[in-house]
């Protein structure tokens, strides 16, 4: 009843968007597709929502084959495209009403499902959708995708361009929807959101790098990771790039995430090297890897 994807490939002319992708989403799972822009996430969503036909491979959504049973899938899934795709010249309420009607239902019938989300935009129900803020647009789009009580929900980058507070609220809503038994496939370029999924697939250049729970993925990080900072960030990165023991460096907020070529690294000699490069106020301490670190490591 979830989603099954096996060996799906798709290319646009000479550009390969997806190459032999396989994964399963269990019923009731909140599954994340994590990857940068152009990784092939939207293409995969469109194949699963029956909008595109894959060149090779099989896929099933809620037990229906995406090719032959496309009509059944269209009745039972909710889809929120990456681009805001509601009627901008219709009001909030008219949009929701319209989508309820074309799915043969009413707002009242499934109000409990969208209630948590809809109450937040209800004060603006007479405002045209085009005049809403980014976060409110996403809430409206989610309400519209949910109003017919879908079995599977597809959310393509629902939080792109949304402020941090709204992003947090949005994910809390997804968690609540999951408790109501809806299978959710969500994609995002934000690694910090990945930790909120049950399982995630890291995807890049049309290939899946790894599939696992966020904590397991983080534990796969192969080396000890260090936070390093100094008075001069630019000088720090430049010096570390030249350092002979450097395995990888990756700027992360106010720190640089550093791994060494050797498993037992010598903090003191690194510090001495950095001081010799004219840097001061140097701190080096071991830290926990994040999904972003894992992604960067896998994507190397």
């Amino acid at each position: 009843m979830g989603i099954t994807v096996s060996n799906i490939s798709k290319s646009y002319g000479k550009v390969t968007a997806l190459s032999a992708i396989s994964f399963d989403v269990k019923p009731g799972e909140l599954f994340g597709l994590i990857g940068p822009d152009g990784a092939g996430k939207t293409t995969l969503f469109r194949i699963l929502t029956t909008l595109l036909i894959a060149d090779k491979g099989q896929a099933a959504v809620a037990g229906y084959n995406v090719l032959n049973d496309y009509k059944s899938i269209r009745k039972s899934v909710g889809y929120m495209p990456g681009r805001f795709s509601l009627y901008q010249d219709l009001t909030v309420e008219e949009n929701l009403n319209f989508f309820a009607t074309i799915f043969g239902t009413t707002i009242e019938e499934n109000y409990d499902l969208v209630k948590d989300i809809y109450v937040q935009i209800e004060p603006f129900k007479n405002r045209r959708a085009g005049k809403l803020s980014g976060g409110m647009k996403q809430k409206l789009a989610l309400s519209c995708a949910l109003i017919h009580k879908p079995k599977v929900l597809f959310l393509d980058e629902p939080t792109t361009g949304v402020d941090p507070v709204s992003r947090k609220e949005f994910w809390e809503m997804l968690k609540r929807l999951q408790k109501k038994g809806i299978t959710i496939l969500v994609s995002t370029p934000y690694m910090d959101e990945a930790a909120l999924c049950d399982r995630i697939a890291l995807i890049q250049d049309g290939k899946i790098l790894e599939i696992d729970s966020p904590s397991a993925i983080v534990s796969h990080f192969p080396k000890p990771l260090y936070n390093i900072n100094a008075d001069n960030m630019y000088g720090l990165i430049e010096s570390l790039t030249k350092y002979e023991h450097t395995y990888s460096i990756f700027p992360f907020g106010e720190f640089v995430h550093y791994t060494d070529k050797w498993d037992s690294m010598d903090k003191e000699s690194l510090k001495a090297y950095l001081e010799s490069q004219g840097l001061t106020d140097i701190h080096i301490e071991e830290t926990q890897p994040t999904i972003e670190d894992t992604f960067m490591e896998l994507a190397k």
């Binding site: 909008l51 495209p81 795709s85 009627y87 989508f99 799915f103």
Partner: peptide, 13 residues
């Protein structure tokens, strides 16, 4: 153009 056809297609219409 506005992408709403995408949603209309993924509907029972």
């Amino acid at each position: 153009e506005q992408g709403t056809m995408e949603i209309l297609l993924v509907s029972p219409l």
